[in-house]
Amino acid sequence: MATEQFIGVVDRFEDDLAVVLLEQDGEVVDELVIDRDALPDAANHVDAVLQITRGDDGSVREMSYDAETTTERKERAQSRFDRLSKRPPKDDDA
């Protein structure tokens, strides 16, 4: 049986459901809606990164929380935010 590998990112929660965006090569290619209880315990938060394997029928075969990538993405996003939040100096301030 053929399988596909994805990086999944928890996008949001809608009641008892988790909406997970599936990425391949840095692009969002699909969306997965699963029961929130099906997430690994550590991944029960927005922006959690998962390693997901789906079968050719679309069902999830394996799902694991990727703590290292979650932390890296959070730090990169915070760094971008910090850079963008700094105002450039006015011409008369320089």
Rank of each mutant, 00 (worst) to 15 (best):
E72I: 11
D47C: 05
D25L: 01
D37R: 06
D41M: 03
S59W: 02
K86L: 10
G55E: 12
S79Q: 11
E4K: 11
R80E: 14
S64Y: 03
M1D: 07
N44F: 00
D82W: 02
V49Y: 13
A94W: 10
V49S: 09
V9C: 09
R54Y: 05
S59C: 00
R73W: 13
E75W: 11
T71Q: 15
L17S: 03
L17N: 04
D25G: 02
A94L: 12
D93A: 12
D41Y: 01
F6C: 03
R61P: 02
E14L: 04
N44M: 10
Q51W: 06
A42R: 14
L50Y: 06
V9G: 03
D82N: 10
G55D: 11
A67I: 04
K74S: 11
E68F: 08
Y65C: 04
S85G: 08
E14W: 02
T70G: 09
N44A: 02
S85K: 13
G58L: 08
R61A: 12
D11V: 00
E62L: 14
V19N: 11
G26H: 04
D41P: 10
D92E: 06
D93W: 14
R61F: 05
D35E: 05
T3H: 03
T69L: 15
V29Q: 10
D91L: 14
E4S: 13
P40T: 12
Q24E: 13
S59Q: 13
E23T: 07
H45P: 03
L50N: 03
A2F: 07
S64C: 07
F13T: 00
R76A: 10
D37P: 00
I7N: 08
H45Q: 14
I52L: 07
T71H: 13
D91F: 15
L21C: 09
A94P: 00
L32A: 04
I34C: 05
I34M: 15
V10C: 01
V19W: 04
F13P: 01
L32S: 09
F6W: 14
N44K: 15
F6A: 08
L21P: 01
L32Y: 06
G55R: 10
K74G: 12
D47M: 08
M63I: 15
I52A: 01
A77T: 07
L21H: 15
D47F: 05
T69G: 03
A67M: 03
A43L: 07
D25V: 01
D57T: 06
D35H: 00
D16K: 11
M63L: 08
Y65D: 04
A38S: 11
A18H: 00
Q5K: 08
V19Q: 06
R80Q: 12
S79A: 15
V46I: 15
Q24C: 03
D47T: 07
S85Y: 06
V60A: 09
V28L: 04
V19F: 05
V60Q: 11
R61I: 14
D47G: 01
